[in-house]
Design a protein around this nucleic acid. Structure first.
Length: 349
DNA sequence: GAGCCGTGGAG
DNA sequence: TCTCCAAGGCT
């Protein structure tokens, strides 16, 4: 790295003093750190999830479970339902495991070292560093996707990801100051999300533009270099809407894997061809809607047929719970099922 | 290491 | 409309 890089930190911190975003989990620049519980919760919610999506969930969550002890004592099903819509549901399972580990193994307080933090479920390299810096003021090298982008441009690192990660981490280490660790980390992330954006970076507004090698070369958006991705395949399935006395049959998905642990509509297998009524939850007079539901997951697109039936109480039904349709919003359905449920409800009238 | 794991916003 | 991808972690 060039010799002037340490001044990157002072330029960036000066900018952050003036432009830091006000966020419910954040302390203003230069003030004491916020409650570690709020830092931890926000960091987990923010994993692969944008600020605008997290904010309302965060507010509701801290009102309901304001500390580690309260969350550790919470009911699993309620926690999973509260996470509905946020995605990556393993985070909710790990959040609960994490809260219980903090209570049982750490006296109800978050440890302040990266190594100890990393032993807690749901906390990896990034989150451990972020918590250590933001909640405890420790110097830590915090590298998320924003920092990767900022630093890859700053140093014009042209090695493709993920092979570039060690070089990016070293370059980040070189510009990370000993003091104001939390502010520095958050300033880098604010910069990445508002100025040094993936597409069309606003270099004219950038407080560290004078240090940027990618900009000097005239190609800031060429970094970081990313590998090409495979196209998402399409998979087909069927969702079942089984109605009885104003209630609909919901099931709980297996604890692991896609949508693991979440309440759901019954589904058949997901496969290359439409599976029809395979694995229907009951023998019934199923009506297949002419409409289908489409939903994009991370690594495939699901196209679902919509099968509905109304039964009386005398028909044998697979396991599940009858949920009042009028209160379907409170079931905590993942978005893929909430969308389908809305379509089924529209078909009832 | 590479694949799995959601969702909504931006362009 | 469609593609890309975001405050990653786990296996």
């Amino acid at each position: 790295m060039s010799a002037n890089l340490p001044s990157v930190a002072s330029d960036l911190l000066g900018w952050y003093d003036r432009h830091a975003r006000e966020l419910p989990w954040r302390a203003p620049p230069g003030t004491p750190p916020p409650d570690p519980y709020r830092v931890w919760l926000s960091e987990v919610m923010l994993q692969q999830t944008q600020v605008a999506t997290v904010r309302p969930h965060f507010e509701r969550w801290v009102a309901r479970w304001p500390d580690f002890a309260r969350l550790a004592a919470a009911d699993d099903a309620e926690v999973m339902a509260a996470w509905a819509g946020l995605g990556y549901y393993a985070r909710a399972r790990n959040l609960l495991k994490g809260a219980r580990a903090i209570v049982s193994d750490h006296g109800g307080r978050l440890p302040d070292s990266e190594a100890a933090l990393r032993t807690i479920p749901g906390i990896g390299d990034y989150t451990a560093a972020a918590i250590a810096a933001i909640a405890f003021g420790r110097r830590a090298v915090v590298v998320d996707a924003n920092v990767e982008r900022v630093v890859a441009r700053l140093a014009a690192i042209d090695t493709p990801l993920p092979a570039a990660k060690p070089a990016i981490r070293a370059a980040t280490d070189a510009i990370t100051p000993d003091a104001h660790a939390g502010d520095f980390a958050q300033a880098m992330m604010d910069l990445g999300s508002t100025i040094c954006t993936t597409r069309a970076p606003r270099c004219l507004l950038c407080p560290i533009a004078r240090h940027c090698r990618a900009l000097a070369a005239g190609v800031p958006d060429r970094f970081p270099v990313k590998p090409t991705k495979r196209a998402r395949p399409v998979r087909h399935g069927t969702m079942f809407w089984l109605e009885r006395d104003g209630a609909v049959l919901l099931v709980r998905r297996p604890a692991r894997g896609l949508l693991g642990g979440m309440r759901a509509l019954p589904t058949g297998p997901w496969s290359d061809a439409p599976p029809g009524l395979a694995d229907a939850p009951a023998e019934a007079d199923w009506r297949i809607s002419p409409a289908t539901s489409e939903h994009g997951f991370t690594h495939f697109t699901l196209v679902s047929a919509l099968a509905s039936a109304v039964i009386d109480g005398h028909i044998a039904v697979a396991d599940g719970e009858w949920w009042p349709i009028a209160q379907i919003e409170s079931a905590g359905l993942p978005t893929v099922f909430a969308k389908a449920a809305a379509m089924f409800e529209g078909m009832r009238e």
